[in-house]
């Protein structure tokens, strides 16, 4: 079973844990419509492209879902591995792809090893719990 890594804009680092997963190929999709929807101007786009140059990914341009589906078909991949993100646009793409592929989300190194808190609203509710871990190497992980 072959796996394809889809790297997105929230995780542009070769040391991201996603790359530790067994995979055949890793790709980044340059999606103009997505970037327009995110309000990204020229400055940001240049920063992103420059950041991609050194990463172990192939860059393709096009609609993200269509391009990933075509790449997965060509590579006979049945699994898509991607960095975890809170971004609903990216999560929506992963949900759409999960109809044809097994989608696996890989979290980055955490700042603090603290489970999600229900109904989080004000910073100090979080900080009271997080503070000790925040001053611990690797956030207590």
């Amino acid at each position: 079973m072959s796996a394809l890594i889809w790297l997105h804009e929230d995780a542009l680092r070769a040391a991201h844990p996603v790359f530790a997963e067994p995979h055949e190929r890793a790709v980044f999709i340059w999606d103009d419509a997505y970037m327009a929807a995110m309000d990204y101007g020229l400055k940001r786009r240049v920063f992103l492209y420059e950041s991609l140059l050194e990463l172990p990914v192939e860059i393709y341009a096009g609609d993200t879902i269509e391009t990933l589906e075509a790449l997965a078909r060509a590579a006979q991949a049945s699994c898509l591995i991607s960095p975890h993100t809170p971004n609903p646009r990216l999560n929506h793409i992963m949900e759409a792809l999960s109809e044809t592929l097994r989608v696996q989300r890989i979290a980055d190194d955490a700042f603090v090893d603290l489970p999600p808190q229900e109904g989080l609203r004000r910073f100090f509710k979080y900080w009271n719990k997080a503070k000790k871990l925040a001053f611990t190497r690797d956030g207590g992980a």
């Binding site: 103009d32 970037m35 020229l42 786009r45 240049v46 920063f47 950041s51 050194e54």
Partner: peptide, 22 residues
């Protein structure tokens, strides 16, 4: 980047001196 970004307005000309990359 411009060629790959048809949605960008041609009036947008500034690029930051801050460089991408690790």
């Amino acid at each position: 980047v411009r060629a790959l970004s048809p949605s960008l307005s041609p009036e947008e000309t500034f690029v930051s001196d801050t460089k991408g990359g690790r």
